[in-house]
């Protein structure tokens, strides 16, 4: 028996919003520790890694490991049926071929349940080693979303260059070029609004705008975003979801031919 209850359905709605442009289907792996999802987009350029810890749920029970392959389009349709203030409970029997979503209004006057067929997905998993990155940049997630949106008007790629002076985001295309430089916040009063740069070695990497814009769909999950970079390895864009876990995106760089 698997059962996971969240007081606010909005978290699950936002998580789905944050992955559904990259993935059409994904496997939710549930065990004692919580719910995990790892999936690449069709082109294998980007990967989503989601963790929702058991202790972040209001109720969590998982007697046996459960693997639930879900069509994310169908799941999105179902979650649209939940009010933002509804509680949501996901339930599945052991070895079941369906999952049930139960939505309850705050006063318990409306209770709805939606059963969805599960899929048998045979998806590739990547083994991602623990990595020490040369640069980590933390900044307000809304600022990152704004930059990606602004720069993607000019070109298809963004060059991210991190040095001890700060971090620079650049692009160029038919109409011209654009650069945004961010320096570390001088005095940190409000941590959520700070730009914090840790750099062991300078790194410059190039990434496709389109994917960065997909990642920013997670903006409402977290006030801050962390970018981790090392030379010649994928970028990690992490949004910490308060009290429950994180969503991380990995993006393969563009390289000189």
């Amino acid at each position: 028996m698997f059962e996971a209850r969240l007081l606010k359905s909005s978290i699950l709605k936002k998580v789905l919003e944050a992955i559904k442009d990259l993935l059409t289907q994904a496997t939710f792996d549930c065990d004692d520790n919580g719910i995990q999802l790892q999936a690449m987009d069709n082109s294998h350029v980007a990967l989503v890694s989601l963790l929702l810890r058991a202790d972040g749920f209001d109720k969590y029970r998982c007697d046996r490991n459960v693997t639930m392959g879900m069509n994310l389009g169908s799941m999105t349709k179902i979650l649209k049926c939940a009010g933002d203030k509804d509680t949501v409970t996901m339930k599945a029997q052991d070895n079941a071929d369906t999952v049930t979503f139960v939505f309850e209004s705050p006063n318990q006057e409306k209770v709805s349940d939606y059963e969805m067929k599960l899929m048998n997905l045979d998806l590739e998993h990547l083994g991602i080693p623990e990595t020490e990155y040369s640069c980590t940049i933390r900044m307000p997630s809304a600022e990152f979303a704004r930059m990606c949106r602004d720069l993607s008007q000019f070109g298809e790629s963004i060059v991210i260059s991190c040095t001890k002076e700060g971090v620079k985001f650049s692009t160029s295309g038919d109409i011209g070029s654009a650069n945004i430089k961010l320096a570390q916040t001088a005095s940190i009063d409000k941590e959520d609004e700070a730009v914090i740069i840790e750099m062991d070695e300078p790194v410059t990497l190039t990434f496709a705008c389109q994917y960065l814009n997909y990642f920013t769909k997670a903006t409402s999950l977290s006030p801050q975003v962390q970018l981790s970079m090392s030379a010649d390895v994928p970028l990690v864009v992490e949004y910490r979801i308060p009290d429950i876990g994180h969503i991380r995106y990995y993006l393969a760089p563009k390289i000189e031919e």
Binding site: A46, L126, G127, I128, T206, V233, P234, A252, I255, E256
Partner: peptide
């Protein structure tokens, strides 16, 4: 510039 894929960097399990 050419786009790489993640399988260039990480092994599949």
């Amino acid at each position: 510039m050419s786009q790489t894929t993640l399988t260039k960097f990480y092994n599949t399990r």
